[in-house]
Design a protein around this nucleic acid. Structure first.
Length: 678
RNA sequence: GCCUCCUUAGCUCAGUCGGUAGAGCGUCUCACUCGUAAUGAGAAGGUCACCAGUUCGAUUCUGGUAGGAGGCUCCA
C-alpha cells in the first residue's frame, strides 16, 4: 500500500521524475523567491502535494504579477489578524488584493483612527516576525459554517455559495468586488495561521487562497495607507463597513519606490498646480464643482480651444451655438428626463399666473439647465428640410452643460457640475457611418497626439441590458460597426460590457499619461435612437425620406477635465504653445531693462506671450521665480549679451545657451510655439 | 447621497487643557544693482468658514449649514 509511486512532472518546462506527493517547497527549495506554484494554470500553495502524473508545475516568483497578488492577499490576512487582536469585536468582510496593495473590510463599532493604523502596523510586524505558517484546510459547508459562526458576513458568503449554481455564484461574487477571493469555485477552504513555536492555530479565515508559505516573507515592506467606509458587497443599500487599505512589496526599496510614485502623483495634482500657477479656483460662493479660470488658466484654456477650433474647421466641422437652458419638452423627447433626471439640476418653474385666490390661471413651464448638447443639435438639423447632399453634417460646439453630480463625487476639474464639452454631432447616412467613424477616430487620435498624449488603448462599451432603448438589431449593427472600426485602428481593444449609454454603444479612447496612469479621454458614440426620437430625416437620392445616423463625439470630454489631465501629464510644465507665459526676460541688472524690453517687444510682435521681470528682486531670485512658474523660455541679457546684440537662453531643465543673436532667439521661440514643440 | 476626517493671515501650517492668536513664504516700504533656483531690515495683514446652543466668557465644547480631503456608490 505505502509503495512510493513515481510520477512525471513538467517542472518549469522540463520533465522530472519525482515521488508522488512531492511538494512545491521541495521542488523549488533552491529558489528562494518562489512563493507559490502554478499547477496546470491554477495557482496553488507552495506546499501543495503533487500527485497528478504529467502535470505542469511552474514556479511563481514573489516579484511576478501573480506573486505580488499573493503577497498582498496574505498581507491582508495578517492585517485582519491584527485588527481582531486590537478589536476583538471586529467582524470580517472581504480582504482581496488590488492594484499595488490590498484592503480588508471590517464591521466594527467605531471607525478606525489614524492612530489605530499605526498600532496595527506595529501589531502586523509582530505577526510577520513570528513567522506564522499559512496552512490550507478543505472543509465541508457544515464545518465551515460551524467555524465561522461568529462571522456573519462569511456566513452570508457561504449561504450564497450554497444557494446558487457555481458558475452563477462566481459571476456574482466577482461582481461583488473581490468577494470571490473568499469563497472561490470548487471546494471550500479555510486557511489557518499556525504559530511557528507552539504549533497553535492563532487565527483562521475562510479563504480560497493561495497564500505565501509564511508571514516572514511579508518582511516589513508593507504599510497601511488609509481607512474609509465601503458598502458591503459594493451595494449602497447594504451596511457600510470600515475598510483599511494597505500596500505590500517584496522589498523595502520597492515599497519606497511605490511611495515615491504616490508622492509624485500628489505633486502633479492639478488642484495643487492650479493654485500654485494661478490657473483656476473654486469659489465657495459659486457652489461645489463650479470652477472659475483665472487669467493664466484662461490663456491655457484659450490656447487649447483655439487649436481645437482650427483643427475642427480643417476637418470639415461647422460651428454652432446653443443656449444653456431649455423647456422640459426637449429632454422629454430625447429621453434624458426618463434616464438621467437625478443627474440634472431641478427645474426652474416660470411663467405661472395665479389669481388673487391663488388659483392657477395660466400654467407655468419647467426650464432645465442642459446636461447634454445633442438634442439642441438635433433641432438645428431639423430646422429645415435636409438633403443627402448635405451629409455628413458635422456640428461642433464648445457646449456648456450642467449636471447635478452627487456631492461626494465632485473632484477638482475632473468631476464638476458645470463644464464645457468639445462636443460634436455628425449626422450621416448609414452608408457613410463606418467611414465617418473611422476618419473621426483618426482625427481624435491625431489631435490628442498634438496635445502631447501618445499612448492609447480603446474600450468598447456595449449595451446595458437594464438600461437601453431601441431594437436589438440596431444595437448589434451599431456595436459591430464600432468594433470593426476599433479593430482597424490596430490599437488594443478592451471590452466594457454594459458600459454604454442608453441610446447607443461607444468607443472610448484611454490615454496613459507621463507617469503611467490612464485617463478616459475621447468618446465616440453611435446613435440610431435619438434621430428616431426627434423624427429626423433627409431626402435621399431616390427621393425617399430617410433617417440619418448620429455620431456623438467629444475629444477632451470636457475642456476642464482635459486641462486637468494635461496639467498632471506635464506636471504644470506646459509645452510652450500652451504655457500661460512663454518667455520671461530677466535683465542681469537694471541697466539692461531697456535692452530686454526691445527683445520682448520683438517677441510680442511675433505673437509670443513674453514678459520682462523688472521687479526689485535680485537676479538669482528672478531665475528662481521663473523656474517655479515653469516658464518654458527664460531669456537673460547683461553686458556681454548687449555688446554682441545677443541674448542667453535658460531652459526649463536648467541648461543654458549663451550669446544667441537676438533674431535667432526670436525665430527659435516662434518656431517652437508654431510647431507645438515639447 | 453614505462613512471618516478637515476648515486659523493671500498661500503652507503651528497654537489656544475655554480668557479673542504665531511662523515661513507672498505683499508693501527702505537700503542693495547683482550673470543662472531664495540680499538684508522694517511694516501691514486674521469676526480663527458660517449660524445657533452651553458658558461670566467660545477660535477652542455641542449641534446645524457651507466648502474641502480620502474612500464607497454613481459618472449620459
Amino acid at each position: 500500500m505505502a509503495v512510493p509511486q513515481h510520477i512525471t512532472l513538467i517542472v518549469d518546462g522540463e520533465e522530472h521524475q519525482v515521488t508522488a506527493g512531492t511538494t512545491g517547497t521541495e521542488l523549488f527549495a533552491d529558489q528562494r523567491d518562489v512563493v507559490v506554484i502554478r499547477v496546470n494554470d491554477e495557482l496553488k500553495d507552495l506546499d501543495t502535494e503533487l500527485v497528478e502524473d504529467g502535470a505542469r508545475v511552474d514556479p511563481v516568483a514573489i516579484g511576478s504579477p501573480e506573486g505580488l497578488n499573493v503577497l498582498r492577499h496574505s498581507a491582508a490576512h495578517v492585517m485582519a489578524q491584527a485588527v481582531q487582536q486590537l478589536r476583538p469585536d471586529a467582524k470580517l468582510g472581504i480582504g482581496p488584493y488590488v492594484t499595488d496593495g490590498f484592503y480588508f473590510d471590517f464591521d466594527v463599532e467605531d471607525p478606525f483612527t489614524p492612530e489605530d493604523l499605526k498600532k496595527l502596523e506595529k501589531m502586523m510586524l509582530k505577526i510577520v516576525n513570528s513567522n506564522q505558517q499559512f496552512r490550507r484546510r478543505v472543509v465541508t459547508g457544515d464545518k465551515a459554517r460551524a467555524e465561522m459562526a461568529d462571522e456573519p458576513y462569511k456566513l452570508e458568503l457561504l449561504g450564497l455559495k450554497g444557494e446558487s449554481a457555481e458558475a452563477e455564484l462566481d459571476a456574482e461574487l466577482d461582481g461583488a468586488e473581490g468577494a470571490s477571493v473568499e469563497v472561490g469555485a470548487g471546494e471550500l477552504t479555510i486557511y489557518d495561521n499556525v504559530d511557528r513555536k507552539s504549533g497553535d492555530v492563532v487565527w483562521e479565515d475562510l479563504c480560497r487562497g493561495p497564500h505565501l508559505p509564511n508571514t516572514k516573507i511579508i518582511s516589513n515592506a508593507y504599510a497601511l495607507t488609509r481607512s474609509a467606509a465601503a458598502y458591503w458587497r459594493g451595494d449602497e443599500k447594504n451596511k457600510q463597513l470600515q475598510r483599511i487599505y494597505g500596500t505590500a512589496w517584496p522589498t523595502k526599496d520597492d515599497l519606497k519606490a511605490y511611495q515615491e510614485r504616490i508622492a509624485e502623483a500628489e505633486r502633479r495634482d492639478h488642484r495643487r498646480i492650479g493654485a500654485e500657477l494661478d490657473l483656476f479656483s473654486f469659489p465657495e460662493e459659486l457652489g461645489s464643482g463650479l470652477p472659475v479660470f483665472h487669467p493664466k488658466g484662461g490663456i491655457v484654456r484659450k490656447a487649447m480651444e483655439d487649436y481645437s477650433r482650427q483643427r475642427h474647421a480643417d476637418a470639415g466641422y461647422e460651428f454652432v451655438y446653443t443656449p444653456h437652458i431649455t423647456k422640459s419638452r426637449l429632454y422629454e423627447v430625447s429621453g434624458h428626463l426618463d434616464w438621467y433626471r437625478d443627474g440634472m439640476f431641478p427645474p426652474m418653474h416660470v411663467d405661472e399666473v395665479t389669481d388673487d385666490d391663488g388659483n392657477v390661471v395660466k400654467p407655468g413651464q419647467d426650464y432645465y439647465l442642459k446636461p447634454m448638447n445633442c438634442p439642441m443639435h438635433c433641432l438645428i438639423f431639423e430646422s429645415r428640410g435636409r438633403s443627402y447632399r448635405e451629409l455628413p453634417m458635422r456640428m461642433f460646439e464648445f457646449g456648456s452643460v450642467y449636471r447635478y453630480e452627487k456631492s461626494g463625487v465632485i473632484h477638482g476639474l475632473t468631476r464638476v457640475r458645470g463644464m464645457t464639452q468639445d462636443d460634436a454631432h455628425i449626422f450621416c447616412t448609414r452608408d457613410q457611418m463606418k467611414q465617418e467613424l473611422s476618419t473621426t477616430l483618426d482625427f481624435v487620435l491625431g489631435l490628442l497626439r498634438d496635445y502631447g498624449l501618445e499612448d492609447f488603448y480603446l474600450e468598447l462599451s456595449t449595451k446595458n441590458p437594464d438600461k437601453y432603448v431601441g431594437s436589438d438589431e440596431i444595437w448589434d449593427e451599431a456595436t459591430n460597426t464600432l468594433a470593426e472600426v476599433a479593430q482597424a485602428s490596430g490599437l488594443e481593444l478592451v471590452p466594457d460590457p454594459g458600459g454604454a449609454a442608453f441610446y447607443g454603444p461607444k468607443i472610448s479612447v484611454q490615454a496613459r499619461d507621463a507617469i503611467g496612469r490612464t485617463w478616459q479621454m475621447s468618446t465616440m458614440q453611435l446613435d440610431f435612437n435619438t434621430p428616431a426620437r426627434f423624427e429626423l430625416e433627409y431626402q435621399s437620392d431616390d427621393g425617399s425620406r430617410q433617417q440619418p445616423v448620429m455620431i456623438h463625439r467629444a475629444l477632451f470630454g470636457s475642456v476642464e477635465r482635459f486641462l486637468a489631465v494635461l496639467t498632471e501629464h506635464y506636471a504644470g510644465a506646459f509645452p510652450a504653445w500652451l504655457a500661460p507665459v512663454q518667455v520671461v526676460g530677466i535683465p542681469v541688472a537694471e541697466a539692461f531693462n531697456d535692452y530686454m524690453y526691445d527683445i520682448v517687444d520683438k517677441l510680442r510682435a511675433a505673437g509670443i506671450r513674453a514678459e520682462v521681470d523688472i521687479s526689485t528682486d535680485r537676479f538669482p531670485k528672478k531665475i528662481r521665480n521663473a523656474s517655479k512658474d515653469k516658464v518654458p523660455f527664460v531669456l537673460i541679457a547683461g553686458g556681454e549679451d548687449s555688446d554682441a546684440g545677443a541674448v542667453s537662453f535658460r531652459f526649463r531643465d536648467g541648461s543654458q545657451q549663451n550669446a544667441v543673436p537676438v533674431d535667432d532667439a526670436v525665430g527659435r521661440i516662434v518656431e517652437a510655439v508654431a510647431n507645438r514643440e515639447r
